[in-house]
Computed example of a mutant assay.
Amino acid sequence: MYAGFGLRIDSELPLPDLAPAPDRAAGPDVVVRLGVVPPSSSAGCALPRGFWVDGERIGVDVPDVGRYACERGTRITVEPVPGASPDALRLFLLGSALGVLLAQRGLLVLHGNAFIVDGACAVVLGRSGAGKSTLAAEMHRRGHVVLSDDVVPIDTAGRALPGWPRIKLWRDALDRIGLPTSGLDRVGPGFDKFHVPLERPALGPGPVPVRWIYVLDRHDGPLRVVPVAGAAVFTSLHEHSYRQEILVGDLRRTHLARSADLARAARLARVDRPRGVDSVVASADAILADIEREEQHASDGARTVGA
Rank of each mutant, 00 (worst) to 15 (best):
R8L: 12
I9L: 10
I9P: 08
S11Y: 01
L13N: 03
P14A: 12
L15E: 09
A21L: 07
P22W: 14
G27T: 09
V30H: 09
V31R: 14
G35A: 10
S40F: 05
S40W: 12
S42A: 15
L47E: 06
G50H: 08
G50Y: 12
F51R: 01
G55S: 14
E56A: 15
V60H: 05
D61P: 00
P63M: 10
D64H: 14
G66S: 13
E71T: 15
E71Y: 00
I76W: 07
I76F: 01
T77Y: 00
P80S: 08
V81R: 10
P82M: 01
P86W: 04
A88G: 07
A88Y: 00
L91C: 07
F92D: 07
L93G: 10
L93I: 08
L94Y: 10
S96R: 12
G99V: 03
L102K: 04
L102H: 08
Q104S: 07
R105W: 15
G106E: 01
V109F: 11
V109Y: 04
G112R: 07
N113Y: 08
N113K: 00
A114E: 10
F115L: 13
I116G: 07
L125S: 07
G126E: 06
R127S: 09
R127Y: 13
G129K: 08
G129C: 07
A130R: 05
G131F: 10
S133H: 10
T134W: 15
A137G: 09
E138F: 04
M139A: 15
R142N: 11
R142E: 12
H144F: 14
H144M: 02
V151H: 03
D155I: 04
T156R: 15
R159C: 14
A160C: 07
L161W: 15
G163H: 05
P165Y: 02
R166W: 02
R166V: 01
R166I: 01
R171H: 13
D172H: 11
A173S: 15
D175L: 08
I177V: 08
P180K: 05
D185F: 03
P189S: 13
D192W: 09
K193F: 02
F194Q: 11
H195M: 02
V196N: 06
V196Y: 09
V196R: 11
P197C: 13
L203E: 14
G204L: 00
G204P: 02
P207F: 08
P209D: 11
W212T: 11
W212Q: 11
I213C: 14
Y214G: 07
G221D: 02
L223H: 11
P227M: 10
A229W: 03
A229M: 02
L237A: 12
L237E: 12
H238K: 05
H238F: 15
H255S: 04
H255Q: 12
H255Y: 14
L256A: 12
R258N: 14
R258L: 12
L262P: 09
L262F: 03
A263W: 09
R264S: 03
R264D: 02
A265D: 10
A266K: 10
A266Q: 04
A269W: 00
G276T: 07
S279K: 01
S279A: 15
S279P: 06
V280M: 06
S283K: 01
A284F: 06
A284N: 08
I287E: 05
D290M: 05
E294Q: 15
E295W: 02
E295H: 10
Q296V: 11
S299Q: 12
R303C: 08
R303G: 01
V305K: 02
G306W: 15
